[in-house]
Design a protein around this nucleic acid. Sequence first.
DNA 1: GTCTATAACCGGATAGAC
DNA 2: GTCTATCCGGTTATAGAC
Lengths: 221, 221
Amino acid sequence: MAKTTKGEQTRTRILESALELFRERGYEGTTMRAVAESAGVSLGNAYYYFASKEHLLQAYYGNIHEQHAAVAGPILEQEKELEKRLKGVLRAKLAVIEPYHRFSGLLFRTAADPKSPLNPFGEESAEARSKGIDLYRAVLDGVKLPPDIAAELPELLWTYSMGIVLFWLHDDSPGRARTHALVDGSTELVVKIIRILSNPLLRPLRKSALEMLAAIRTPPS
Amino acid sequence: MAKTTKGEQTRTRILESALELFRERGYEGTTMRAVAESAGVSLGNAYYYFASKEHLLQAYYGNIHEQHAAVAGPILEQEKELEKRLKGVLRAKLAVIEPYHRFSGLLFRTAADPKSPLNPFGEESAEARSKGIDLYRAVLDGVKLPPDIAAELPELLWTYSMGIVLFWLHDDSPGRARTHALVDGSTELVVKIIRILSNPLLRPLRKSALEMLAAIRTPPS
DNA sequence: GTCTATAACCGGATAGAC
DNA sequence: GTCTATCCGGTTATAGAC
């Protein structure tokens, strides 16, 4: 019963008002005052629940991940081949975010700022990030790989998926055709490269790559 | 003599005050009021010369490329080996942008927004982008490569360099050690990969990669 | 201790007089 | 080309209600 305290309800009302207004008028076109009014609360009250306007966006993108995970689940249960699993998950992502293409620029805009709470590499998104990485761990589930790569690959694939999203943001081709070409082409390549790198002859190359990854990793704080 | 009209001088004064304050206090920490005061003009007058605070940043962006090209030139004249050429140019970039680390996030923030004129993939930066790509063309100058890759490589390297900068933005390790590890490790890898891909046996892989690149390329408008 | 409201602050941006 | 006055919206301080 702790789930629908009055506070929870108010919080939800504010968030939903905000998301609706964002969709209607875009992010910049939506004022915190309008959000508060539309939710039937005072401005100060809105700030009691959401520390900033950006945090409202963060909730918005949190939703996206949940939707993505929900759509990706069935795909992963059905497909066994790595390339299809990866491609399916990426296509699902594109489908989920498509309605928000218009103002997703805002995501990257803030995400690229190291100081923003939305920054996917920052502390505040640690949870969202690890959920995202988990999804790519699931993609690799049941795939045979040399153990040294296997440990690193989920995070690498997640990073790769972020690159795809960045490309998508800038893609205004009809039906997002260019991004789809990128997904189709790059998943094929990624899988081929993984296969090639799995070759024992290339173990030295793999090793130096993995050493680099260790060196650039953020020390756990 | 058209060069130093009163207007030009005022404009320069405002810009220099701004860049100095940005370096000292960061972008967000610098108010337009402070910029105006430090330049000895009124707030409104500052806006007469620069349409927004962001436009002040744009000026910085242009400076950086010029500095980078100037520093990179001598390096390329001296080094003959691809890995050293690439590493040298990337290190030069890091050296040039280091003083601005504190507020470069902001730059990227706007630059990553597809609607921003600063966005490096957009139309308005076409010239800046092609200059950047030219620099990596120069890096490859004199390097023997299969012609199919040779055509694509400058743009790929440029994109790769943007990735390095993105990483640097988020790097708060002492002396930017992690980014330097990334540069050292990744240039080595990049060169190895280019070598491997140059192997005639891998021509099919190369071919599908190049086909993908063609498919995702923005149609010339 | 959890929640809500009002008033004010601050800084980016604009209008319009000189 | 320069100024002053003002707007606007994100954010904060703070007082009090439940």
